[in-house]
Amino acid sequence: MSEPIETRLKPFNPLADKTLALGGRPDLFLRPEDECARFSLRVPVGALKKAAVAFEGNIPENIGEMSVGTGKSALCLGPDEWLLLAPYRDAQSIIVRFSQLYETAAHSLVDVSYCTLGIKVCGPRARLALNSGCPLDLENMPAGRCTRTVLAKAQIILLKFDDQHYRLEIARSFAPYIWEFLKNAGKIEEH
């Protein structure tokens, strides 16, 4: 087995140590989320229970649902596609347990930890800033849902915790662009 993930190089984070607070309350607050391990899981729905056992966490079955636990999260992005988030310290054990799962359930687990980074977007202006570049109806999107979509022409994965708290998963190379976009969008006055 390869060396544990936590000993690998830390991924490049173009937003390292950045935070943004606009307005008094603050109205818009941006911060990169803590680094974590990410896995793209493709598995038939019939084998999902086995996958959840290997993940040691809940994996929701329907598109758009997400299960956010302490540390481990699972996002259902497509009919047979999930994004799994976990702390680095759990990454190696997840890989090992899924490799044992190959014997009983056909699936694909790919480590995509370095592909994207997370941005926390919160505050009373969070929705306005996001909707400046994302045509989804975020106001009526239920809390606790997730989806892959587009923000200012960049593909993102959007998690909604509540109306004033969102998380984006964005390709690392696009992160500075999206950061600046949200910063400028947060400054626009609503008429």
Binding site: G78, P135, T149
Partner: peptide
């Protein structure tokens, strides 16, 4: 913007997706 019903997502989604 045009909304397209995705039969998998079961909701109208913006055309740029």
């Amino acid at each position: 913007m045009l909304l397209i019903d995705c039969p998998y997502c079961r909701q109208g989604r913006p055309e740029i997706e």
